[in-house]
Computed example of a mutant assay.
Amino acid sequence: MRVATYNAHRGRGPAGPFRPERILAVVAEIRPDVIALQEAQHYLRRGRPMLDAAMAAELGLMPLAPLERPEHQGWRGNLLLVRRDAAVLAGPTGLRLGGMEPRGALLAVLDLGQGPVRVIGTHLSLGEGRRRRQAAALLAAMESGPGRDLPTLLLGDLNEWRPGRGALAVLAPVFGEPPRAPTFPAFRPLASLDRILGHPRGLVEHVAVHDTPLARRASDHLPLTARVETALLRRAG
């Protein structure tokens, strides 16, 4: 199973006009089973869908509207696109994580034919102290929310580039330390801001940056992809 995370920069490249169709063109290059998008909001009208749902459907993907706001395409800029044949077993539930720019996460339990898996897409704040609190809130949601005992994927822009610090230090006891994979800035990636984490250990394999000419133009971040060890999902199911 192929998963990905991608900060869409509200449909704008590193510089230039609002062109969200390029985001879906990059998603088409990746061909994910599940992708978490951040900053996936219309640049001028936050309540209006940023991505063309019909275009996503042509890619075999569907957006998961949050239960709290079914009329919205995402939650606080976070959006989950999943294969159209995926079974949604729970959620998606919007989580409020606070911050000066309100941050959040989407949590859903899915089955893509290999067994159930909990998926969390998120975007954390810029301040280290706030990121630590937000990471702790994500772990608390895992303990109390749906899919408590299931394998879990945490996908998103964690804004944390230093190994063993901030949010990564809080998440490490559950998810371990992720490999370095620079995704930002897109034109010359140096910082590993975007992460794909898995619990239990060994769930996430072959993490790689999706670096193509189109991806460098579509957003200020590059997407991050990974392969999921589906044997662990079948065992949990």
Rank of each mutant, 00 (worst) to 15 (best):
R76M: 13
N159P: 09
V207A: 08
R103I: 15
G99K: 13
I196N: 06
Q134G: 04
A135Y: 09
P163Y: 00
E205A: 15
T5Y: 03
L110E: 03
A36S: 15
T212P: 00
A36W: 10
V207E: 04
G127R: 15
G113R: 00
P182Y: 00
G145N: 09
V34Y: 10
V174L: 10
V109C: 12
A25S: 11
A169L: 12
P20N: 01
R10H: 13
G98I: 08
L79Y: 03
A231P: 01
V174M: 06
P185G: 13
G98K: 11
F184R: 11
G104I: 11
A231Q: 09
R130G: 12
M1I: 08
P213M: 00
L37H: 10
L233C: 09
G202Y: 13
A231G: 08
T152P: 08
L232D: 06
E128D: 14
R148Y: 04
D85Q: 02
A4T: 04
R69S: 09
P17W: 02
A135N: 09
L214F: 00
V207S: 02
V34W: 11
L24F: 02
Q41A: 12
G113Y: 00
D52L: 03
A108H: 08
G11T: 03
E29D: 05
V119L: 08
G74F: 05
A108K: 08
H199I: 05
D85M: 00
G237Y: 04
A65G: 02
L224S: 05
D149G: 10
Y43I: 10
A57S: 12
R84F: 01
V117M: 03
R162H: 03
E177D: 09
P116L: 01
V117N: 04
F175R: 06
R132N: 04
H199N: 10
R118L: 11
L197C: 11
A215C: 04
G11A: 05
R130W: 14
